[in-house]
Design a protein around this nucleic acid. Structure first.
Lengths: 134, 134
DNA sequence: GACAAATGATACCATTATGGTATCATTAAT
DNA sequence: ATTAATGATACCATAATGGTATCATTTGTC
């Protein structure tokens, strides 16, 4: 079980790199040189981040990407929503005719509590909080 | 993202049913009649639970399955280990040359803390605890 | 002993998600 | 005009998940 997929993971690395960079815009070649992420895959991820309002882009020679928001305003939860869909630990397989056995669906309640905790944690993680003392 | 898969989910339902039953052994037809789980799939799951020491089986006519341990001793964590492998939220994609950016791998630390919490919760859930006041 | 009813073992299959590639069009600086 | 970048989009390979099918074996009942 993975909490975050490669998409999200790569997005985080790329965003951290861009956040740390001195440059006005950071290009894919810049990123590929430092992070070892397959180029076409990285491009795809950056394009999604652009359309989702996390990054801004400049086309043409000398172009590249820059953060569309401050690192403090980019939450891990945002990235997971974009690349992994809404976070739910708790999807009942017997949709709405939940658990033949117990009316109260005790398992779902337990899982819901776990879910609430995890979401709270994820909402506290931002790109800024992952930059360290850099 | 699913915390538990259908295998685990069905296993839980079946075990709860068997735990509640008056009968000495519970057969697949008994289970299929009450829980709406595809018969061949359920059989497969029960066979695994048998080989893993969660259930005991009796072959032949009038045969079936019974719990090999008390419901208090069957943990959700056991079932997840069997059907989903060891629980890890935290697999680093850059195995051991962890995170080029930060030596300290701040993201992994955050995820580790979440993982510890989830595991503790999962270890507190048993079949007995899911039976309700039945 | 024959039969029926159960599990044991095992091979197979369809669908989906994940991770990744490839290609052509468009933009803009030189 | 050329070059170096992104935009858009279609495609693909692999693995995991969820599920089926089949035959062998055991055991109670007539």
């Amino acid at each position: 079980m993975k909490l975050i997929t490669r998409y999200t993971d790569y997005a985080i690395r790329a965003l951290c790199f861009i956040a740390k960079s001195d440059k006005e815009v950071v290009s894919v070649p810049d990123l590929v040189a430092s992070l070892k992420i397959p180029r076409p895959f990285l491009r795809k991820i950056l394009q999604v981040l652009n359309t989702q309002g996390i990054l801004s882009s400049c086309k043409g020679q000398g172009g590249g990407f820059s953060l569309a928001r401050k690192p403090e305003k980019i939450f891990l939860m945002d990235l997971m929503n974009i690349f992994q869909g809404p976070f739910k630990l708790n999807e009942c397989f017997f949709k709405m005719k939940c658990c033949p056995n117990t009316k109260t669906c005790l398992l779902r309640k337990r899982i819901s509590r776990i879910e609430q905790y995890v979401i709270a944690q994820l909402q506290s993680i931002t790109i800024a909080s992952l930059l360290g003392s850099g």
